[in-house]
């Protein structure tokens, strides 16, 4: 059974179609990519899937549950996590707090219990901190735990955002231009990192990306958007040869 099923979703802003009749099926432990020129509707597609913006029409199913009109926090709790094109870390919390906040759904105590610091509050808090610290060391960020995210170099902020997304224990991870602003060596490391977390956490990943090498390298399936419409879908080799794609998008580059 497919993990994510997007059934002809549409969204327009002020009469302009940002995404039009977009459909896709994403399997478990699969890495796929969504590519397309600027303004093709890639990020909008992510926003629709994660419930950030309401759909105009269409339906979305995740893990057998319809999530079409669920609020974002419910969709997240079902197991969809994401990162952002322009990094969205909480700059008034430190690095450790950023991670612990994303793990808040694992805590089952109420605010009243918390005020009296009952034993189960303390023990759950400790366990959450332990998990957060294990992610920090997984991403080699331990020594920054008490720093503010905006004091970190850009590449580390991207890693921190990835760590924070994994704190949610997702089964589907949406990466919005993870290579933006990274240098070639960092991109190479990122590709290895994405492979590694996919294998170890048994994740399904969808990547929105401009960087062709990254997408062609790690995605088993690629969807091509142009002006909100899907113009092609297939394996990287097929996409590379598709005349429509070449014309719409890769034309000048290949």
């Amino acid at each position: 059974m497919a993990l994510l099923e997007v059934d002809s979703i549409s969204k327009s802003f002020g009469g302009v179609a940002a995404v039009k009749d977009f459909s896709m099926v994403q399997g478990r432990e699969e890495i796929s990519g969504i590519i397309g020129p600027n303004g093709a509707g890639k990020t909008t597609a992510f926003n629709l899937i994660t419930g950030v913006q309401p759909l105009d029409s269409g339906r979305i199913f995740f893990d057998g549950t319809e999530i079409t009109s669920l609020p974002s926090h419910c969709i997240t709790r079902l197991g969809i996590a994401r990162t952002f094109q322009n990094i969205r870390l909480f700059h008034n919390l430190n690095v450790l707090e950023n991670l612990m906040m994303a793990g808040g759904t694992r805590l089952s105590y109420s605010t009243w219990e918390e005020m009296f610091r009952l034993p189960r509050v303390v023990s759950q808090e400790k366990r959450l901190e332990k998990i957060a610290r294990s992610y920090l060391s997984y991403f080699h960020l331990e020594k920054y735990s008490m720093q503010r995210p905006d004091s970190l170099p850009y590449g580390l902020q991207r890693r921190l955002e990835l760590a924070r997304a994994l704190m949610l224990e997702p089964s589907l991870l949406l990466l919005d231009e993870p290579a933006a602003g990274l240098n070639p060596r960092e991109i190479h490391n990122l590709i290895e990192l994405i492979y590694k977390i996919k294998e170890e956490k048994r994740l399904s990943i969808i990547i929105v990306e401009h960087h062709m090498e990254l997408v062609m390298n790690i995605c088993s399936k690629i969807h091509v958007l142009d002006f909100g419409l899907k113009i092609a879908e297939g394996k990287p080799e097929e996409i590379k040869k598709n005349p429509e794609v070449l014309q719409a998008y890769l034309g000048e580059e290949v």
Binding site: G51, H73, T76, R77, A81, F90, N92, A102, T105
Partner: peptide, 28 residues
Amino acid sequence: FLRKTKQGIAIRAASSDIWTPSLMGINT
């Protein structure tokens, strides 16, 4: 409350970005 509790930390997080906490599973 704002420093130590999960709701307090969520309020601080929402102060820096009201949009993202819901994508961390928090009911804004």
